[in-house]
Each structure stands twice: as C-alpha cells, then as structure tokens.
C-alpha cells in the first residue's frame, strides 16, 4: 500500500494576523485521505493539540526548525480514527489555550459540590486563565452555568471512562 504524502499546513501567517487557526487545522484533518499524515508548522510547540489529535487517533512527532518554529507531524494510527474527541459543546479553540494555572481534583465529591468548587475557583482567576478539573462524570448542570458566566470549556472522558477531564477558560 502506498502511503500518501503528508498534507502541509503552515498556521504562522494566520496566527500573525491574530486569527484562530483551529478551524483551518480541523478542516485539514477532515480533508486527509485514509492513511495520510498532517504536517503542521506553528510558531510555538502546540502541546494542547497533541491530546486532541491523540483522541482522534493520531500519533505525533515534533521537531524545532532552524528558524525557531515547530513542525509537528500527525500520523494516523489506523485508517479509522475513533469518533470520540471532545464532548459536544466543547470550545473548539481549547488546544491553543495556555497551560492551566490551577488544577482541582474533584473525585469522590457529591454533586453539586464539584460545581460549587469550580465556580468559586473561577471567581479568583484572571480572564483568560485556564482551570483544569478532574471529575467523576460529565458535569451536565455546570455547562449552562459556565455559558451564562461567559466561560469557555472543553472536556472529555479519560480513555478508560472512569474520570472526566475538564478545562475551563475564564471569561473576560
């Protein structure tokens, strides 16, 4: 079987214009032929993207280019990546958020205690900061409240299904 040549995508011009490259990356991913890899060039190492792409069934390898930019190659692990990525409702740009400035382990807490802890923690965080929380299950009642308060979120179940990982970016 012939492996198709990787699809090249350079998101530096887009980022230089201040645009979010997420949509372009995702449409590039969707446009990949079976077995085709995606070669992404970005001005920084897009670490959050690795997890997202791993969830879509891509392995990744990265290297720094001589001009300081990063080249990341996402190679499909098999022809049919699993459909499970981020939960519906997740913010599409989450992969480009900064690293979480605060983490909460909320396992074993009775609802609605996790919701109370998360919303209270967000009050003390500056706009744009990211909170990471580990939960027993998807906090369905929290999401509308986050939206009302102007926060963005992205989350999914860990591959073994026992914990739910949630990132929240504090609203402006």
């Amino acid at each position: 079987m012939i492996t198709p040549a990787p699809l090249d995508l350079d998101v530096r011009p887009q980022l230089a214009r201040g645009e979010e490259p997420f949509a372009a990356i995702m449409s590039a991913v969707d446009a990949l032929a079976a077995g085709q890899a995606l070669r992404l060039v970005a001005p920084f190492r897009p670490a959050p993207l690795f997890n997202v792409m791993a969830n879509r069934g891509f392995a990744c390898s990265d290297r720094q280019l001589p001009d300081g930019a990063w080249e990341v190659t996402f190679t499909p692990l098999d022809a049919a990546p699993p459909a499970v990525g981020l939960a519906p409702g997740s913010a599409p740009g989450a992969m480009l958020w900064p690293d979480p400035s605060q983490s909460l382990d909320l396992l074993g807490l009775m609802p609605p205690e996790p919701m109370v802890r998360i919303l209270e923690a967000l009050l003390d965080m500056p706009p744009g900061a990211v909170l990471f929380a580990l939960l027993d299950r998807e906090p369905m009642f929290l999401f509308p409240e986050l939206a009302h308060r102007g926060h963005e979120w992205a989350g999914n179940y860990a591959p073994d299904g026992t914990t739910y990982r949630l990132m929240i970016r504090c609203g402006d």
Binding site: P112, M115, V116, E120, L122, L123, F141, E145
Partner: peptide
C-alpha cells in the same frame, strides 16, 4: 431538591452564600 437547588442557587455560587442541597 437537586433540581430546585440548581435552579435557584447555581446562579448565586460565588456571589452569595449558598446552602447545601
């Protein structure tokens, strides 16, 4: 009791003291 708590007190979390369910 849970849904009533969510309905009444979820918007108040962090803005006013909230009771337990």
């Amino acid at each position: 009791s849970f849904l009533t708590w969510i309905q009444v007190f979820a918007p108040l979390i962090g803005r006013a003291p909230v009771p337990l369910v």
